[in-house]
Design a protein around this nucleic acid. Structure first.
Lengths: 149, 149
DNA sequence: CATAATCCCGACTAGATTGGTCGGGTATAG
DNA sequence: CTATACCCGACCAATCTAGTCGGGATTATG
């Protein structure tokens, strides 16, 4: 029940990008330095973030990355899914939306409900926190956007 | 963001134990067969479940395992923690209750709230489902015990 | 144009983790 | 005494993780 370092770094880096939103692209080398993350590892991470459409890039000198959407429109769930694929606590649930993957045993389905519920709550939390809430206002507490509790 | 096979097997096996509660110990070989789990792997899992006090064991012929508590007093969170240790989505949070582990960067703490919230929701879901809800009544839907939403 | 900065990307790797297996204990019912 | 069961440390192959490496393509600047 752990998130990878990829995700942790990804979210941190994205929050830096959010802080400097609308001030031109930020180079990975800068982000890596300020967040104490391996530059080359961060490169890999941003390739995935770009492919997922969460960031845009400018190549060449003075280039870098920028948020593809306003900070208020990117949430942590988006980042996690871009870096780790669909969020699902057990593979049994991974079947493509509706078709049960390979849950042959009726036995297994006794426990299926728990994992489904768990998956849904995890997604709710992650999808409920947006980059703009992450960065400010300073010392600000996290607000739940969708008011789901 | 995955649970291990250990946990999946553990919860399934425990639900079998709950089904046959108060009818003497059940041997691992039977459970392994009925749940299609490697017997020797299941042995390892049950050593941990016993050490955590969730099951008791009877050695020798006609021996086996039984629930150490009524099915209504063992929840999925107990099982997960017995088999995987404390539930925490990022290591940054793993510090022993109150002392922050090694969250030196003030940076990292921008994201800390999210992980804390996530950890808490995961624990809520897992701690909210008890073995007796898992096994019955047949086709019964999961009820939330603590009514937290 | 030359150069440096920067993104892009496939291949590689050391170490940890996972999901087991193996071999041999010890206890107990019959 | 023997079969059945739990107990337990050691081992193992495959996979995953967190990087590293080397080079290529693109662009601002001098």
């Amino acid at each position: 029940m752990k998130l990878s370092a990829r995700v942790e770094y990804g979210v941190r880096a994205m929050s830096v990008l959010a802080l400097h939103d609308r001030s031109g692209p930020l180079s990975l080398r800068e982000i890596a330095r300020s967040e104490q993350i391996s530059f080359q590892f961060l490169e890999q991470i941003f390739l995935d973030l770009r492919r997922a459409g969460l960031v845009g890039s400018v190549r060449g000198a003075k280039g870098g990355y920028y948020l593809a959407l306003p900070p208020g429109e990117i949430n942590v769930g988006d980042i996690v899914r871009a870096l780790e694929g669909p969020i699902t606590p057990v593979d049994c649930l991974a079947g493509h939306q509706g078709r049960e993957a390979r849950c042959h045993r009726s036995e297994a389905c006794r426990t299926r409900h728990v994992w489904e519920k768990l998956r849904d709550r995890i997604n709710e939390v992650l999808d409920g926190v947006y980059l703009d809430e992450l960065i400010g206002p300073a010392e600000g507490r996290l607000m739940v956007r969708a008011g789901n509790h």
